[in-house]
């Protein structure tokens, strides 16, 4: 397989410029194999070199793979020469935005952790099982997480009054793309769950209207609302924070992928990945969702 991919790479490179070259890559980790010293990632296009695609990469130094988890956005240098290619200086690209909204959410999260009277539960680690929760979907049906046992679940958070299109709308739109591209898996193997953190205003009817933008099938893409306390329980377990701010919300962005065994495989923060990278990640979990050893 590797040699086939390499052959593809060779085919894309201009033959006359056949010397050692290096490229900057930005990719989302799909799987990591420490024993084979390789990782598979879904990458953004490298202009003049390759289109967006997912493929395996070798590393020379096994320590490059330390701490890498599915869903991590990484930057690395891809070195290509006559006989091989490998990735080096692999760095996780943290989601740090100086845009006002995510900065404020981060600030308030810190303040809450310092000054809160009650201790908030620690968020789930990668590999932990997701406890059951029950909320109500856009068709006013009760939905419990336990009813998805055996299926891969992709989960994200929105509120319908979100003013910024690159935030909640983009998150939901990503799932709209997943709904299209992974149509064959939906229902039987894959379920999409979008939880509102503004349950007081996002009633099932409001969510149903919002879901219409993507013609979401309520049987396979649930938009959930419910009592604020239950919503908070779900958001805290997945490390997501929200703070009401004059009719709007300051909040962090999270997309979570949970495998068939009900364990968190990936929890991606932010919006700096493409819908197709998310599709690749979910496909990878559908095919083999086991947690990589570190």
């Amino acid at each position: 397989m590797r040699s086939l991919i390499f052959a593809v790479l060779v085919a894309l490179v201009v033959p006359s410029a056949w010397a050692g070259r290096q490229y900057s890559a930005t990719c989302m980790i799909l799987t990591v194999d420490h024993t084979r010293q390789t990782f598979v990632a879904s990458c953004q296009p490298i202009p003049g070199f390759m289109e967006a695609m997912s493929m395996p990469f070798d590393v020379r130094d096994p320590r490059e793979l330390d701490g890498l988890l599915p869903g991590n956005i990484v930057d690395f240098t891809l070195r290509v020469d006559e006989s091989s290619s490998y990735a080096e200086h692999v760095k996780i690209h943290p989601y740090v935005s100086a845009e006002q909204d995510p900065w404020l959410a981060r600030q308030l999260k810190l303040l809450r952790s310092l000054s809160s009277q009650k201790s908030s539960p620690k968020p789930l680690q990668i590999g932990s099982a997701v406890p059951n929760f029950t909320l109500t979907d856009q068709a006013r049906r009760p939905v419990s997480f336990s009813q998805f046992a055996g299926k891969v679940v992709a989960l994200n958070f929105i509120y319908t009054s979100c003013a910024l299109p690159t935030y909640c709308f983009r998150m939901a739109n990503n799932f709209g793309v997943v709904q299209r591209r992974l149509k064959d898996y939906l229902g039987r193997d894959l379920v999409l769950v979008t939880v509102t953190f503004d349950p007081q205003r996002d009633t099932p009817e409001v969510l149903a209207h919002y879901a219409q933008t993507w013609k979401a099938d309520p049987k396979t893409w649930h938009f959930l609302t419910g009592p604020l306390s239950e919503v908070r329980r779900v958001t805290s377990m997945l490390g997501m924070d929200f703070f009401p701010d004059e009719g709007l919300m300051n909040h962090s962005l999270h997309t979570v992928v949970i495998n068939r065994q009900g364990k968190v495989v990936a929890n991606i923060e932010g919006n700096q990945f493409t819908a197709d990278q998310l599709v690749d990640l979910i496909k990878s979990v559908l095919n083999d969702g086991s947690i990589p050893h570190t």
Partner: peptide, 16 residues
């Protein structure tokens, strides 16, 4: 740009 401290000031009350 938010320069008011309102979010910070309201946090304990909202939590309560």
């Amino acid at each position: 740009l938010t320069v008011s401290g309102q979010n910070e000031a309201q946090m304990p009350l909202r939590e309560m």
